[in-house]
C-alpha cells in the first residue's frame, strides 16, 4: 500500500514472506486479507497466461494470478503446499498463487535496499526493494504495480 512509503524509517512494519521456487518474496501484511489453500480455478478465455482463472471466495469471484509467471519465473505444478495469498489493492481483491508461505518479518524501512541494476526490467518494476535477513535475500513485491496492468489490458 502506498501509505507505507510515507512512514518514517524507525517505524516497524510487518511483511509476509513466501517462496516461489528457490526465491523468497514478501508483501506488506496490511494488504493481505487471508491466506488459503489452492483450489482449482475456472480458466478465463482471452487472458494472459499468468492469470490462472477465477475461484469462489465466499460468494465473490476472485481472480488468481500465478505470481511466478507474472515475474517471468518458471511456473511449477500446484501442490498441496501451494497457497493463495488474497490481497486487496484499491478496492480490488486478487489472489496470488505462490509455492508456500515461509515467514512473517518485522522490519524497519531502513533495512530495505534498492533493487540493483542487474535484474531485468520486468522484475525491477515489480520489486520495491530487497531485504537481507539471517543471510536470506527477500524481495518485497510492489503489489500496486501488479494490478494496473490488468486495466491497461482491458483498455
Amino acid at each position: 500500500m502506498n501509505e507505507t512509503h510515507a512512514q518514517s524509517t524507525s517505524e516497524r512494519r510487518e511483511l509476509i514472506a513466501f517462496c516461489i521456487g528457490e526465491q523468497e518474496y514478501c508483501v506488506d501484511i496490511m494488504a493481505v486479507r487471508e491466506i488459503r489453500g489452492w483450489s482449482p480455478a475456472t480458466p478465463l478465455p482471452q487472458t494472459p497466461d499468468y492469470m490462472r482463472g477465477v475461484i469462489n471466495l465466499r460468494g465473490a469471484v476472485l481472480p488468481i494470478m500465478d505470481l511466478a509467471a507474472r515475474l517471468g519465473l518458471p511456473t511449477s505444478e500446484t501442490t498441496v503446499r501451494s497457497v493463495i495469498i488474497v490481497i486487496k489493492v484499491d478496492e480490488r481483491m486478487v489472489g496470488l498463487l505462490v509455492d508456500a508461505v515461509s515467514d512473517i518479518l518485522s522490519i524497519t524501512e531502513d533495512l530495505i535496499q534498492a533493487t540493483p541494476d542487474v535484474a531485468c526490467d520486468r522484475v525491477r518494476s515489480f520489486i520495491r526493494g530487497l531485504i537481507t535477513m539471517e543471510g536470506r535475500m527477500i524481495s518485497e513485491i510492489a503489489i500496486e504495480r501488479l494490478l494496473p496492468e490488468l486495466e491497461a489490458l482491458a483498455a
Binding site: L44, P45, Q46, T47, V54, G59, A60, V61, L62, P63, R92, M93, V94, L150, E151, L153, A154
Partner: peptide
Amino acid sequence: KSLEANYRQV
C-alpha cells in the same frame, strides 16, 4: 457475479 469487481471484463 461480476467479473469486473475484482478483475475486468472478458
